[in-house]
C-alpha cells in the first residue's frame, strides 16, 4: 500500500472492485452457466408468467362446459382443442398452471424453512438435541410420501390441502438432513468460529452468517424438490386424492383425458402431461445448475 502504483497503460493504477455486483452482472453470470440452464430458467419464468396472467390470457372460462363442442380438434377457436365436456384445453392448462405451481410452492417453501430450522438447530446444538431431531427426521424419512398423503386425505378429506400438508411433512426431513450435514461442516469453518470468539450469541451467528451461507446449496436442492413435488401432487390429483374435478389441474386433466385417448384423441391428456414433464425437467436443470455454481464458488 505504501508503494504507489506504477504509471500503467491500462486504466488508472489498480482495478477498483465494485462493492457488490448489480443485477445485470448477476444475469450475465447466470447465463454463463450454459444455454441449457438459461433455457430452463426462461421456461420457468414463462411458466410463472402464464400462471399469474392466466385470467388475462385464457380465451375461455376454464370450467365453461360446451357439450356441442366435445373433443374439438385444434383450430382458431380452440388452439389446443377441447376436452370431453367441450372445455377449452388451453384455458384449463393456463389455470392448471396456477394450482400446479401453488401446491409445490407451499410444499417447498414450508419444508425448506422447517428443514433449515431443524437442520441448523441439530447441527449447532449437537448432543441430545441433535439425536432427538435426527431420529425424528429418520422416522419421517422412513415413511413413504404417498402413504402419508393418502393418510392425510383420509383425515382431512380430498382436495389440495391434504396432499400438500403430507408433502410438507415428507419433504422436511429431506431438507433437514441435507442442512444438518452442510451446517455441521460450515460451522467448523474458521469464519464461524471467529464469530464465536468475538462473543456473538449462537442465534445471531446462525441467522446472520451460517444460514445465509448455506442457503444457496439448500435452494439448489429446493429447486429440484419443487419439480418432484409438482410431479407427486399431479400424481395424487390423477389418482383422485388431490385436487378434485372439475377444478383445472394438470393431474386431473391427465386423468380426464384418459377416455378421449380410447377414441384416439391425444391432446386432452398429452398437453397437461407434456407440461408436467417440461416443468419437472426445467426445475431439475435449474437445481443442478445452481448446485454446480455453489460448488464452483466453494473452490
Amino acid at each position: 500500500m505504501s508503494a504507489s502504483a506504477p504509471a500503467s497503460v491500462k486504466d488508472a493504477s489498480t482495478p477498483t472492485p465494485p462493492l457488490r455486483r448489480g443485477a445485470p452482472a448477476r444475469i450475465r453470470k447466470l447465463a454463463a452457466q450454459g444455454p441449457l440452464f438459461t433455457a430452463a430458467v426462461l421456461v420457468l419464468v414463462l411458466l410463472v408468467l402464464l400462471a399469474v396472467c392466466a385470467p388475462l390470457l385464457a380465451p375461455y372460462e376454464p370450467d365453461a362446459i360446451d357439450l356441442k363442442n366435445s373433443l374439438a380438434g385444434t383450430g382458431p377457436d380452440h388452439w389446443l382443442g377441447t376436452d370431453q365436456s367441450g372445455r377449452d384445453i388451453l384455458s384449463r392448462m393456463l389455470y392448471g398452471a396456477r394450482t400446479g405451481l401453488l401446491g409445490p410452492l407451499a410444499v417447498v417453501g414450508v419444508s425448506t424453512v422447517l428443514g433449515i430450522a431443524m437442520g441448523v438447530v441439530a447441527a449447532w446444538r449437537g448432543g441430545w438435541v441433535d439425536s432427538l431431531l435426527s431420529r425424528s427426521m429418520d422416522l419421517l424419512f422412513a415413511f413413504p410420501a404417498m402413504l402419508l398423503a393418502i393418510l392425510c386425505v383420509a383425515v382431512f378429506g380430498a382436495g389440495l390441502t391434504a396432499p400438500v400438508i403430507a408433502m410438507m411433512i415428507a419433504y422436511t426431513p429431506y431438507v433437514g438432513r441435507l442442512v444438518r450435514s452442510i451446517a455441521r461442516q460450515e460451522q467448523t469453518r474458521p469464519y464461524i468460529e471467529s464469530y464465536r470468539v468475538q462473543g456473538w450469541s449462537g442465534w445471531s451467528i446462525c441467522t446472520r452468517h451460517l444460514i445465509p451461507n448455506i442457503t444457496p446449496t439448500v435452494l439448489a436442492q429446493s429447486a429440484i424438490n419443487f419439480g418432484y413435488a409438482l410431479m407427486e401432487l399431479a400424481g395424487l390429483s390423477y389418482l383422485g386424492f388431490g385436487v378434485q374435478a372439475p377444478t383445472a389441474d394438470w393431474g386431473v386433466m391427465v386423468s380426464e383425458g384418459q377416455n378421449p385417448l380410447l377414441k384416439d384423441v391425444m391432446l386432452p391428456a398429452l398437453a397437461p402431461a407434456t407440461a408436467i414433464v417440461i416443468a419437472v425437467v426445467a426445475f431439475g436443470i435449474v437445481g443442478e445448475g445452481l448446485a454446480d455454481r455453489v460448488s464452483k464458488r466453494e473452490r
Binding site: 469453518r189 474458521p190 469464519y191 471467529s194 470468539v197 468475538q198 462473543g199 452468517h209
Partner: peptide, 24 residues
C-alpha cells in the same frame, strides 16, 4: 461472553476461510 471476548481474540491460519464471504 463479551467480557471473555475482550480478554482473548484469535487470528486463524487460513485467511481464505476466516472471513464471511458475504460480508464486506
Amino acid at each position: 461472553r463479551l467480557a471473555r471476548a475482550r480478554e482473548i481474540q484469535m487470528v486463524f491460519q487460513d485467511p481464505y476461510l476466516s472471513l464471511d464471504p458475504r460480508i464486506t
